[in-house]
Amino acid sequence: MNLTACLLLSAALFSIGAYGLVTRRNMIAALMSLELMVNAALINFIAFARFGGTHAGQGDAQAGSLFALFAVAVTAAEMALALAIVVAVHRQRRHLDIRELDGLHG
């Protein structure tokens, strides 16, 4: 394992997540894609903390790991909120198809 491999992995994850977010019709699947994108960023943080970045000189390895921890907590809260909204949408419409969400228009 080296930095390049980690960055390639995270770039792949990010792209898969972005692709899923755009193409999936089910809202839960879209949220799972979102989670993939966040995980790509987390892998970046850990990889940069472990192997050092592209900068010259000594970096702050602790800061990256710490940021990843905070980001995990924030994302968990975000997903809890998103699922609550998913429940609210399902109650109103009895489906979770994003493309059928077209009640709002000019």
């Binding site: 970046n44 943080f45 050092g52 970045g53 970096g59 994302t75």
Partner: peptide
């Protein structure tokens, strides 16, 4: 948020610091 987080991770990689 995911975009922001991904961006910050590269800033961290490029500078080695978050301050």
């Amino acid at each position: 948020s995911a975009l922001t987080l991904f961006g910050i991770s590269f800033l961290y990689g490029a500078t080695g610091s978050l301050g």
